[in-house]
Design a protein around this nucleic acid. Structure first.
Lengths: 348, 348
DNA sequence: TTGTAAGCGTTATCAC
DNA sequence: GTGATAACGCTTACAA
């Protein structure tokens, strides 16, 4: 029952084949495909049947040409962390599964000064309906402006509200970090170290804010030598660990701005013969695979990244996705997960 | 100097604008775009200039329609491991950077019985030039057959040659595992445990083969209770560790078929108070982030996944990528990386 | 070496 | 409600 185009299976049936079989014009078929309201139920049924019979799949390229718009949404990222990118992708795909959309992935090089130009070429070429920007490039205002200029919708994903609600999906890093640190304080910790994320990252700033908030509430302050800079890399965690754990009066607990750095601090603890959590409590952030692979398992913050991916997609193209209301708040809650790396401090 | 289409920036210039400006026909412009040889250098120059002046970017949707083929290549995977997928993606993107191609990412659910049908719909809709199949779905012959049927090129990525050279990129798991195990034997280990990957995975079988090869060469055999089944997950590593390290005569070294399971074994060693590598040597496979994040750092096998991504792309669409010869062997070498988790066995 | 005419498969316009 | 007809921007015949 395939189209009469010669060898069986040689061609996909087109809208013309459907129209012929259903005995209507191609425009009517088009109306059915695009769910136009102005169509008789009977006609629609006939067309639907013809579509089924022929196994017709509308050609997205032709639609894209006619619509002057591709049925694509793009994910722009700077590879902050593989698991994050992939989980986010998965969330996006959850959301667009039953739609006509497909996902284009585009890593960008934050460092390059041609970055903006590269993205422009990419967007002009592919003409996606919209783009989702993952942190840290989501913090780049020029990038958002570029999207606007090119008529490409965008959504920025971040650790805090970076833009108005229709252009933003975020987590509540500040609050949840405060919660995690309160837990340490509740256990009796008074000397709590802090390993920061990279300068210029909003997430790093938010987490630091949260840390200080919890300390302030408890009337504590961060001793200057209990602060360590970092860049979200393991090596930075090692450096921080070396610095903090060599002090005459080292912290009894350390909050690290991500899991990778926490793993670095933990390695140093092990190699110095410090027991975790007996002599040192450690908390990370991300709930990356690393958090459960290291020993003891790391207490950390789970970032609802997959849900954020789905939310980002719905925020970006609600009209393509069963019109889910965007009434929802753009802020998704992270949760503190306590594992074996945290305990009360040893008695002095 | 934009096209004369009304409001500035309202429209992209089209091939017609270029043709008009250059004083040639649109077909000639098309020839320049597509690097036809039959064109006078002078004409080409004029057209190039016009393209530059107008900032013309060929509309990929229109080309796709005319070519009956999208300028897209697809990456099909079953999320074996985020880092792997992302590194592979990166490799592909390295290779296609200066081409007209874009990358479509499509996770598939290996478990679902609609998997083949889902992929068929995806390929029919998007009509990519080709698809790259990551393990373990690369081992699915029906999937490869489907690609052929639909006229979509494909490349299968695996731990061994899964197909003829033009459809395959692989690593040499068997050899490199043998090398790693030889190292253990060379250090004096005689009781070496093995944690296997999931049944039905070619990679698991290849690594097991390599393991046995090395043992056989040294006149050793694997004691039945030194074998543990697994599934590439952390929890399986923990189970394996519990089993192997509770034996009256436990192995002095364990080869794990991936890093995640190795991390599980290491956790058990730590919680049993066994020192690594003093009392137990451990080797993993993948060189995932986990390998360096756990303590002590894991000896493992680095799989040239990014290079394999680039190679896969070149194998898939050599004609779109500066005609790099496919003379190269489809097998890329993995390398054994020795870190702190391996040492000579303790004296009995 | 270059140009003309006819699609590619869909949607928009505007009658009916 | 529905259907001709003309786009959409590019390529492939086939001529010249």
């Amino acid at each position: 029952m395939r189209a009469n185009k010669g060898e069986p299976g040689s061609k996909q049936p087109t809208i013309n084949d459907v129209a012929a079989l259903a005995g209507v014009s191609k425009k009517t078929v088009s109306r059915v495909i695009n769910r136009s309201e102005f169509i008789a139920e009977k006609t629609r049924k006939a067309v639907q049947d013809a579509i089924e019979t022929l196994g017709f799949v509308p050609n997205p390229q032709a639609r894209a040409l006619a619509f002057r718009r591709n049925f694509l949404i793009a994910l722009l990222h700077d590879n902050p962390n593989a698991q994050t990118v992939l989980n986010f992708q998965q969330g996006v795909l959850d959301a667009i599964k039953d739609s006509d959309l497909a996902l284009l992935v585009r890593p960008v090089d934050r460092g390059s000064d041609r970055m903006l130009e590269d993205v422009r070429i990419f967007l002009e070429k592919q003409r996606p309906i919209g783009a989702m920007l993952l942190p840290p490039i989501s913090e780049n205002d020029a990038l958002a402006a570029l999207c606007s200029e090119l008529g490409v919708r965008y959504v920025r994903v971040g650790s805090a509200l970076l833009d108005d609600a229709v252009h933003c999906v975020s987590s509540n890093d500040r609050e949840v970090v405060a919660e995690a640190v309160r837990r340490l304080i509740g256990l009796g910790h008074r000397r709590i170290g802090f390993v920061r994320g990279p300068v210029g990252f909003r997430s790093a700033a938010e987490r630091e804010e949260g840390f200080h908030t919890a300390l302030r509430e408890a009337g504590l302050t961060l001793a200057p030598n209990h602060f360590a800079p970092g860049n979200y890399r393991y090596a930075a965690g090692v450096e921080a660990g070396e610095a903090l754990l060599s002090l005459a009066e080292p912290p009894t607990a350390v909050f690290c701005s991500n899991d990778e750095m926490a793993a670095g601090v933990m390695s140093v603890a092990h190699s110095k013969g410090l027991s975790v959590p007996g002599q040192l409590s450690i908390i990370g952030f991300d709930d990356s695979p690393t958090a459960t692979h290291i020993w003891p398992a790391l207490s950390t913050v789970r970032w609802p990244i997959r849900e954020m991916g789905a939310r980002a997609a719905r925020t970006l193209v609600p009209d393509f996705l069963d019109g889910t209301a965007i009434e929802e708040s753009p802020v998704l809650a992270s949760t503190f997960i306590e594992r074996q790396s945290v305990a009360a401090p040893a008695q002095p």
